[in-house]
């Protein structure tokens, strides 16, 4: 059965660390980094890369448009 795998790229410098993407992710992929960007915000990153399905919910709710989403089918 084909499996869907996804990945997100977060624009670290644009992210304000509001954590809305973390709450919106149905697969618990995202978490907040311990590192901060130039503005002093902790930014979101993929903590659990394997679980991402590329549903784009995180990117849709992101108020600052920081998230780019990629998705592909993998034959498993």
């Amino acid at each position: 059965m084909a499996k869907v795998r996804g990945a997100v790229v977060v624009n670290n410098e644009r992210c304000k660390g509001c954590e809305l993407c973390v709450a919106a992710c149905p697969s618990d992929v995202l978490a907040m980094s311990k590192h901060v960007n130039a503005k002093g915000y902790n930014y979101a990153y993929m903590a659990n890369e394997e679980a991402c399905t590329g549903c784009a919910n995180c990117a849709v709710v992101c108020p600052d448009g920081c998230i780019t989403v990629y998705r592909t089918k993998v034959n498993g």
């Binding site: 996804g6 590329g54 448009g65 780019t68 989403v69 990629y70 998705r71």
Partner: peptide, 12 residues
């Protein structure tokens, strides 16, 4: 491997 232009589904 997933982050390729042909797999793009959402961007700003």
């Amino acid at each position: 491997d997933i982050i390729k232009p042909e797999n793009l589904v959402y961007q700003k």
